[in-house]
Nucleic acid binder design. Structure first.
Lengths: 267, 267
DNA sequence: TTGGATATTATTGTTCAACAATAACGGTGG
DNA sequence: CCACCGTTATTGTTGAACAATAATATCCAA
């Protein structure tokens, strides 16, 4: 059966329905690397080929996100369109599209005619982010259903953080700690809230990247996460939420102090 | 005083400091209209000239946002790059950059190789949005300081909504009602939360646009806003928050019913 | 007629080259 | 030290071109 297509106001068309299924045959096109950074450039292409229907622009965005959390790009850095485009093997236009997404997430800051810069979190940003974390996480924990699937994610995050601490892999400890909090937010069962929280995390991570001493930033909280989880699983959600709030306030003080010392305005 | 520029890893440069101020002389370039939609095209250009350093791409995004809230673009519509670009007088590349921002806000949905569509809010989205509204607004109201400047915005929104109701301008009633709720969120004094809520509002507005009968969607809530405000100003924040929660739940039921009737899957 | 495979077409994805516009830089002269 | 011009590198934007793909139309056989 076929449905008809109804045109409307100029510049737009209204899709009513669609026809039958279609074939999916794909023949990967050849791609020639030129000079320098060939590995990364091929990675981009391959990822885009394997990724199910994802546009190259989005793949580039993911790659830049990775460079950010890996600390290869540090706050304050200017991202030159031509140079970064060359490095990633994409054109300026494609890169600019990726920049727009990243700017919307707050990871980079777009200053017209001046360029795109890795966002330097301000003291006000940190305070704002921590206020929101208390706002969101505590409420999510308090209202949670103890049997929620995300509880399992909380448990896994704590275990993995502990394992990473044994290996003294402080970066991984930070990652798993953050996963613990993301799981708390997931208790609220809101897709939009999860997305929002992911942005907050990414921005917070930027602030961490400037701190000289990641061990003290992450290690102490493994046990605190464990305690929150234990109390929560015991069924005393109010106590768990209260503890979480104290915990977040303490974390905030630590981060603010470290920021003032290492990652301040003189990045 | 001049600071030096320090280069780092390939593809990026690190800006340490900057030189002196610079002149701002601007000579507006000529721009030739060709055929059709000349008014809109010139509007874009003029706005971009007047706007302080805003890139044309962002101006285009704002324009599309306007078309969306004005109902000129309805959910489900496909936005052709060439046609819409022609209509707005911008190139495809510029338009695509604007699309990326809009997609990130959830206003449009990007389906690779298929095009950009005005987002059709699902039932699940509406439920999610309303849950978040209760989550955010009630807490913001409960924790608010009664002397907060946003209280004045709440009052103004109620007054303007009432005035618009007299004129039977239901679209404006909806706008001011939403401004009332945005003001409530502003009580929390969080820049990020405000941005997030703005997105939720925009998405909700999309859902409204498909509803046939805007009067019943907006008119009843003018008085409820008034009551919430009165109780809040009287100092009983808990009662105000409780009333707001009931109010939001009722609104949700109304919207869901209207959605199921008018704006359902058969858009 | 039905169903499935193949060709066609319109659109998106991406690159490239070119130019306009601008901010930063360097110098000059007071 | 400051204000006033050129220079220059970068971003902003365009248009054309081509590749890649989804949707459509065509065809052929059962």
């Amino acid at each position: 059966m076929y449905w008809t297509l109804v045109a409307s106001s100029p510049g737009v068309t209204l899709e009513i329905g669609r026809g039958r299924a279609c074939r999916m045959g794909v023949e990967p096109g050849t791609w020639s690397a030129r000079e320098g950074h060939e590995r990364e450039r091929q990675d981009m292409k391959r990822q885009s080929e394997e990724g199910a229907g994802k546009a190259l622009g989005e793949t580039v965005g993911d790659e830049i996100r990775r460079l950010l959390v890996d600390g290869e790009l540090v706050p304050g850095q200017r991202l030159s369109e031509s140079a970064l485009g060359e490095r990633l093997g994409v054109s300026r236009n494609t890169l600019r599209e990726a920049f727009r997404s990243l700017a919307h997430e707050g990871l980079v800051t777009h200053r017209p005619h001046r360029g795109v810069f890795v966002t330097t979190p301000s003291l006000a940003s940190l305070i704002d982010i921590y206020r929101l974390r208390r706002f969101i996480e505590c409420r999510a924990l308090r209202d949670a259903w103890p049997g929620h699937p995300a509880v399992r994610r909380m448990r896994e995050a704590v275990d993995q953080a502990r394992a990473s601490r044994e290996r003294e892999d402080w970066g991984a400890v930070g990652t798993h700690n953050m996963a613990f909090h993301a799981a708390i937010v997931a208790l609220a069962d809101s897709e939009r809230l999860d997305t929002f929280y992911r942005q907050l995390s990414a921005e917070l991570r930027l602030a961490f990247s400037g701190v000289a001493d990641p061990q003290w930033l992450h290690a102490p909280y493994v046990e605190m996460n464990q305690r929150v989880l234990t109390i929560f699983e015991a069924g005393d959600v109010d106590a768990a939420a209260t503890l979480l709030e104290q915990y977040l306030s303490q974390s905030e003080r630590t981060v603010l102090a470290a920021y003032a010392r290492d990652g301040g305005p003189d990045a």
